[in-house]
Amino acid sequence: MQMHFVKMEGCGNDYIYVDQEKEQIVNPQTLARKISDRHFGVGADGMILICPSDMADCRMEMYNADGSRGKMCGNGVRCVAKYLYDYKKIRKEEIAVETDSGIHTVRILEDSGKATVAMGTPVIEEEPHVISMEGQKTEMMIVSMGNPHAVIFMEPEEGSWKTWNMKKAEAVSTHSDFPDGINVELVQVYSETGMKIRVWERGSKETLSCGSGACAAAAAAIRSGRTKQKVNIEMPGGMMEVEWDSDGQMYLTGGCRFVCEGEYPGSVG
Rank of each mutant, 00 (worst) to 15 (best):
Q188I: 09
P128M: 01
C215Y: 02
D245G: 15
K34I: 09
W161P: 12
L31Y: 04
T99W: 03
Q24T: 15
I25P: 06
A81M: 00
I35N: 01
S212N: 13
E139R: 04
H39M: 04
N165H: 09
R38V: 04
S68D: 08
K7M: 06
V242R: 01
K7I: 02
D54N: 05
A118H: 06
V231S: 00
S267V: 10
A81H: 02
T30W: 11
T193Y: 11
T138V: 15
G12T: 02
A44T: 00
Y83R: 13
I48L: 14
Y87R: 15
T99H: 07
I124Y: 02
E126C: 10
Q229N: 13
E9V: 06
D19G: 05
M133E: 08
Y63P: 05
S191V: 06
T105G: 11
G10I: 06
K82I: 09
G135N: 03
A220E: 05
S160N: 14
E21L: 15
V130N: 00
V231Y: 01
E155H: 11
N147E: 07
M166F: 00
L186Q: 03
E243V: 12
D86N: 14
G225S: 06
M235Y: 00
C58P: 11
Q249S: 07
T121K: 09
M140Y: 06
Y251A: 00
E185C: 07
S191G: 07
A214Q: 02
M119H: 02
P156A: 11
T193N: 08
E243K: 09
K82S: 07
D247V: 04
S224Y: 08
S160E: 06
I108T: 02
Q24G: 13
G46K: 07
D57E: 04
N165K: 07
S224D: 15
C79V: 08
S224L: 14
E243F: 15
G146C: 09
N27T: 15
T207D: 03
E93F: 09
Y83K: 06
H104K: 15
V184G: 05
N27H: 15
I95R: 05
K167N: 13
S204Y: 07
K196S: 15
A150W: 09
E241D: 10
